[in-house]
């Protein structure tokens, strides 16, 4: 039993270090693959701890390997938008300006009843009160209601620059001209999109910029795809 006790103490510190390295996100905020890796690590840590016949090292190798893969995937996700989409998925619109998007609902293996149920759980009884319903990559539902923005056109920003890289698909959807964006940046003394951490555009043409060094700002530009989303 003393062996099990010592193994438990060592496992505690090992898992503690690994979880700290993996980040502080709560279970509800984790991406699907992060949740799966966390569950596997929990399971793997238990086996050598309880079984005196299995060496402790047999638990260390999978824990360290999984942690490396998780941190490596997060690291590459920060650098590559394509990889991030493949790993974490993208936000999905379930209700948009045309109403319920049945195609997206089917992609998420949901039916209309599930959607209505989820809306009620979010405190929305009437679908007509909703402008947009978005399912985030971590599975959370974001509901944007009409009464939140009385007298003002409701807009849904879509990202056009993330971590200094153009989001080509969103640029195409929004009809934003890259030249216009670069002109705005030049006007603010910013050399290129690489110096912008985040930028998004709304249906009314308002573009928001968050730059690495300096204060964030917004401006209005002409866009051709305001009705596309």
């Amino acid at each position: 039993m003393l062996v099990v006790f010592i193994k438990s103490v060592i496992t505690f510190f090992l898992v503690f270090v690994i979880v700290r390295l993996m980040g502080k996100r709560e279970i509800g905020e984790m991406q699907p693959f992060e949740l799966v890796i966390t569950l596997i690590i929990a399971e793997v840590a238990c086996i050598p701890m309880n079984d005196p016949y299995i060496p402790f090292y047999a638990g260390v190798v999978p824990i360290v390997t999984l942690a490396f893969l998780q941190i490596g995937a997060s690291f590459i996700s920060q650098k590559s938008l394509f990889f991030r989409r493949k790993i974490s998925g993208a936000s999905v619109l379930l209700i948009d300006k045309n109403g319920i998007n049945y195609d997206n609902l089917t992609k998420l293996n949901m039916n209309v009843s599930d959607l209505i149920e989820s809306l009620r759980s979010n405190g929305t009884a009437d679908v007509m009160d909703v402008v947009y319903v978005i399912i985030e990559p971590n599975g959370k539902m974001c509901v944007i209601k009409k009464e939140q923005e009385k007298g003002k056109r409701i807009t849904l920003p879509i990202s056009i620059i993330v971590n200094g890289r153009w989001c080509e698909e969103n640029i195409k959807t929004s009809g934003v001209e890259k030249v216009n964006i670069l002109n705005v940046l030049k006007g603010k003394g910013i050399k290129s999109e690489k110096d912008v951490i985040y930028s998004d555009v709304r249906q009314n043409g308002t573009v928001y910029f968050s730059v690495g060094k300096g204060k964030d700002f917004s401006t209005d530009i002409e866009i051709s795809g305001g009705d596309n989303w």
Binding site: L21, V61, V64, T65, F68, F75
Partner: peptide, 22 residues
């Protein structure tokens, strides 16, 4: 980046031990 380097070093030590074991 720092975390990635730390976990890479830990993995390198673990893999070295694994090769030595084999």
């Amino acid at each position: 980046m720092k975390k990635f380097i730390v976990i890479t070093l830990i993995l390198a030590v673990t893999l070295f031990a694994a090769v030595w074991e084999t």
